[in-house]
Write a protein that binds this DNA or RNA. Structure first.
Lengths: 146, 146
DNA sequence: GCGCTAGTCAACAATCAATGTTTATTAGCA
DNA sequence: TGCTAATAAACATTGATTGTTGACTAGCGC
C-alpha cells in the first residue's frame, strides 16, 4: 500500500467514508513490515483509538484486501498475517517465534517457466522457513559461536 | 511414504499396534497424489472399512506425521492437506478447484543461497498458484482456443 | 449547518477444523 | 490368554473469523 493518506483518498474515491477508525488502521499498517495478525493490528490501533473494536479491524482489513491495498498470507499459523507490501516479494518465516521478513530472491523469475502440467500460473509464492538470528542466539544460549 | 506395508512395519517397530483402521488409512495414502484433506482420507477409508471414525483418521494422520511418513500442508484453504510424498518437491495449486499437483523445479536450489537476514534456513516451500487445465477449459466454456 | 446513510459498537450466535475427554467395547500382540 | 492400546460414540472446547441485530454516531454531499 501507499501512505495512509493515499489509501484514505482511494477509500473515499470508492465511496467509503473516512472514519477515524479506518484511518487509524491505515496508519497502523503504513510502513508496517511485521506482517501482523488482525489481533496485532487491533492492539496497535487501540493505542491511539482505544474504542476501536476487533470486529471493525477485521472488516476494514477485508475492505483493504478487496481494494488491493494489502495482502493476506497464511504461513501455517492459526491466524492470517496481513502485509501492506503489495510489491512482488517473498517471505522468511521463523519457526520458533513466527517473525516474518520480506525477501526478494531474483531466482524466482526462473521458477515460473518450469511449471508445467498445463497450468496458467498467476502467482508464485516462496516461503523460506528457518530460525531467525534472535532465536538462534537464544537457542545456543550464552555460547553463540558461529 | 513407502508402501502401506512398509509404513505398517515401521508403526509396529515404534510400538504401535497394527489395526485394520490404521492399515486402511495407510492404504488410502499409499501412492495418493491428490493431497487429500482429513475428510477426504476418511471418505476414501470408509469405502473399505465403513466404521472408521473421522476422529481416528485425524489421530492416525498425526501419528504418521510424527513418524515422518507424511507431511501436512496448508495452502490457504480451510483444511490441511496431507501428502505421502516426503521427497523434496513443491506445489501447483488451482485457485478455482483446489486441485494440487507436485512439481520439481530445479531452480529452487538457487533460491536457498539468496536468503539473507541471518536466518538459518531449513526449508524452502514454493507454491505456484493458477488455473488447472480442466478449469481453464470450463472457464472458456465451449471455446478453448489456446 | 442538516440530514441521509454508512459506519461502528456491543452483545450476541454461528461456523468450521481440529482436538480434548470420558466411557465402554474391542482386538493386537507378547 | 491377558494386558493394554486402540477405537467408537457422544459429548465439549478452542480459536479465528464472520453473520446478525439494534441502537447510536458521525462523514460528507448538498
Amino acid at each position: 500500500m501507499d501512505t495512509s493518506a493515499d489509501v484514505a483518498a482511494r477509500f473515499r474515491a470508492n465511496g467509503f467514508k473516512l472514519t477515524p477508525q479506518r484511518y487509524a488502521i491505515f496508519a497502523a499498517l503504513d510502513g508496517n513490515s511485521t506482517h501482523p495478525t488482525a489481533e496485532a493490528v487491533h492492539a496497535e490501533v487501540i493505542k491511539t483509538l482505544p474504542m476501536v473494536s476487533l470486529r471493525t479491524v477485521y472488516q476494514t482489513l477485508n475492505e483493504m484486501i478487496s481494494l488491493g491495498e494489502i495482502a493476506a498470507f497464511d504461513f501455517g499459523g492459526k491466524s492470517s498475517r496481513f502485509d501492506p507490501n503489495t510489491a512482488a516479494h517473498h517471505h522468511l518465516v521463523c519457526e520458533s517465534c513466527d517473525v516474518v521478513f520480506d525477501v526478494y530472491p531474483d531466482a524466482v523469475a526462473e521458477l515460473d517457466a518450469e511449471s508445467a502440467h498445463g497450468f496458467a500460473v498467476t502467482a508464485v509464492e516462496v516461503i523460506f522457513r528457518g530460525t531467525c538470528p534472535a532465536c538462534r542466539l537464544a537457542a545456543t544460549d550464552v555460547v553463540p559461536q558461529n
